Measured scan of single mutants.
Amino acid sequence: QTVVIGDTTYHLNNPEAAQQIAKELAKKYGLKVVISGNTIKLK
């Protein structure tokens, strides 16, 4: 699972954790979560 935040890319072996982290950050910073395949992007 790949999480992309701005110009930073994180690789996590746990998809659920990756999605949870993405949701928390999106909520905290008012970002939009875009999931395509096994890549999660925060914009």
Rank of each mutant, 00 (worst) to 15 (best):
N14D: 13
D7A: 12
E24C: 15
L42I: 10
L31F: 11
H11S: 06
A26G: 04
K41V: 15
E24N: 09
T2E: 04
Q19H: 11
K41L: 15
T8E: 06
K23E: 14
V34Y: 10
G30H: 07
Q20K: 13
Q1P: 11
V4D: 03
T9M: 08
G37Q: 03
Y29K: 03
V3S: 03
N13S: 12
L42G: 00
L31Q: 04
E24V: 11
D7M: 13
L25K: 00
P15Q: 09
T8I: 13
N38I: 03
V33S: 00
A22Y: 07
A26D: 03
N13P: 14
Q1T: 15
L42M: 03
A22W: 09
A18D: 02
T39D: 03
A17W: 10
L42F: 10
A22K: 02
T39V: 12
A22G: 04
L12H: 04
A22S: 02
Q1H: 14
T39Q: 07
N38Y: 04
A26S: 07
T39K: 05
K23N: 12
Q1K: 08
L31Y: 11
G6R: 05
Q19C: 13
I35E: 01
A26Y: 12
V4I: 12
S36Q: 11
L25I: 07
L12W: 12
Y10K: 02
L42T: 01
K43T: 15
Q19F: 14
I5V: 07
L31K: 05
I35V: 10
K41H: 15
Y10E: 02
A26W: 14
I5D: 02
Q1S: 12
K28P: 00
K41Y: 15
A26E: 09
K27V: 08
L42K: 01
Y10L: 14
A18C: 08
N14Q: 05
K27F: 08
L31V: 09
E24H: 14
E16L: 10
H11E: 07
Y29N: 05
V4N: 05
Y29W: 05
Q19G: 05
A18S: 02
I40P: 01
L25T: 00
K27E: 14
V4M: 10
V33E: 01
T39H: 05
A18N: 02
T2S: 09
T9V: 13
A18P: 02
V33N: 01
V34W: 07
Q1W: 15
K23P: 00
I21M: 14
N14L: 11
K23F: 13
V34T: 10
S36N: 10
T9P: 06
T8L: 12
T39M: 07
L12K: 01
L25D: 01
A17E: 13
I21A: 04
N14R: 03
D7E: 12
A22P: 00
Y10M: 09
A17P: 01
L12S: 04
T39Y: 06
V4Q: 11
A18R: 03
Q1N: 12
T9K: 08
L12Y: 14
L12A: 08
Q20Y: 10
I35F: 07
H11R: 05
V33I: 14
T2N: 08
T39L: 07
G30Y: 05
G30R: 04
V3D: 02
T8K: 13
S36H: 11
L25H: 00
I40W: 01
D7H: 13
N13K: 11
T2Q: 08
K41D: 06
H11Q: 07
N14H: 08
V3H: 02
I35Q: 05
T39R: 04
V34R: 00
K43G: 10
G6A: 06
L12N: 01
K23A: 12
S36F: 11
S36K: 10
H11K: 05
K23M: 12
K41A: 09
D7W: 15
A22N: 02
S36D: 14
A18F: 13
K32L: 13
Q20G: 03
T9R: 08
D7P: 07
K41T: 15
K32H: 13
T39N: 05
K23G: 04
L42S: 01
Q1V: 15
N13Q: 11
P15M: 13
G6I: 09
S36C: 15
T39W: 02
V34S: 07
I40T: 00
P15W: 15
V3P: 02
P15S: 09
K28A: 04
N38V: 03
T2W: 14
N14G: 07
L42E: 02
I21F: 15
K23H: 12
T9Q: 07
K32A: 12
G6T: 03
A18H: 04
T9L: 07
P15I: 13
V33F: 06
K41M: 15
H11A: 05
L12T: 06
T9E: 07
I40Q: 00
K28L: 10
V4K: 09
K27G: 04
E16A: 11
K23T: 11
D7Y: 14
G37E: 05
I5G: 03
G30E: 04
N13D: 13
A26C: 10
K28D: 04
D7R: 13
V3C: 12
A17L: 14
G37R: 01
K28Q: 06
V3R: 00
V33Q: 00
T39E: 10
Q20A: 12
A18V: 11
K41F: 15
E16Q: 09
Y29L: 07
N38K: 05
G30Q: 05
L25C: 07
N13I: 11
P15A: 13
N38E: 02
L25R: 00
H11D: 07
I35D: 01
Q19A: 09
S36V: 13
V33R: 00
G6E: 05
G37Y: 02
E16F: 09
L25N: 00
I40S: 00
Q1L: 15
I5F: 12
I40A: 00
I21R: 02
I5H: 04
A26I: 06
K28F: 07
A18Q: 02
T8G: 04
G6W: 11
A22E: 02
A26R: 06
I5E: 03
G37D: 05
G37A: 03
G37P: 01
K32N: 12
D7Q: 12
Q20F: 10
N14P: 08
K27M: 12
N38P: 01
A22C: 02
K23R: 12
H11W: 12
L42D: 01
K41S: 13
T9C: 03
Q1D: 09
N14W: 09
K27D: 13
A26M: 09
K43S: 14
N13W: 11
V34I: 12
K28C: 12
Q19W: 15
V3M: 06
Y29S: 03
K28T: 03
L42W: 05
L12P: 01
V3N: 01
K23I: 11
A26H: 05
V33W: 06
L12R: 01
V34Q: 06
Y10H: 03
L31I: 09
K41P: 00
Y29F: 09
T2A: 10
K43F: 15
E16I: 10
V3Y: 06
K28H: 05
T8C: 15
A22T: 02
E24Y: 15
G6N: 07
N38G: 08
A17M: 12
I40V: 06
N38F: 05
G6F: 14
E16K: 09
T2C: 15
H11M: 08
K43M: 15
Y10D: 01
G6D: 05
K32V: 15
D7K: 14
A22I: 12
K23Y: 14
I21N: 00
N13G: 10
Y10N: 03
T9I: 13
L42H: 02
I5S: 03
N14Y: 09
D7L: 12
A17R: 11
K32F: 09
L42C: 07
A18T: 05
Q19K: 09
K27Y: 08
K43W: 13
A26Q: 06
P15V: 10
V34K: 02
A22H: 01
K28S: 02
A26K: 06
A18M: 10
P15E: 08
D7I: 13
I21H: 02
K27S: 08
E24K: 12
G30L: 05
Y29P: 06
K43D: 10
I35G: 00
K32M: 14
N38A: 06
P15F: 14
L31S: 03
N13T: 11
K43E: 15
E24G: 04
K27Q: 12
Y29R: 04
T39S: 06
T9N: 04
V33P: 00
N13F: 08
Y29T: 05
P15G: 07
H11T: 07
K43A: 11
G30I: 02
T39G: 04
K32E: 13
V3E: 01
A26F: 11
Y10F: 12
I21V: 09
E16T: 09
Q20E: 11
Y10W: 09
Y29A: 05
Q20W: 14
G6P: 03
I35L: 06
K43I: 15
K43N: 08
P15H: 11
T39A: 04
K27H: 09
A18K: 01
K32R: 06
S36Y: 11
V3W: 08
T9W: 11
K28V: 05
L25G: 00
I21Q: 01
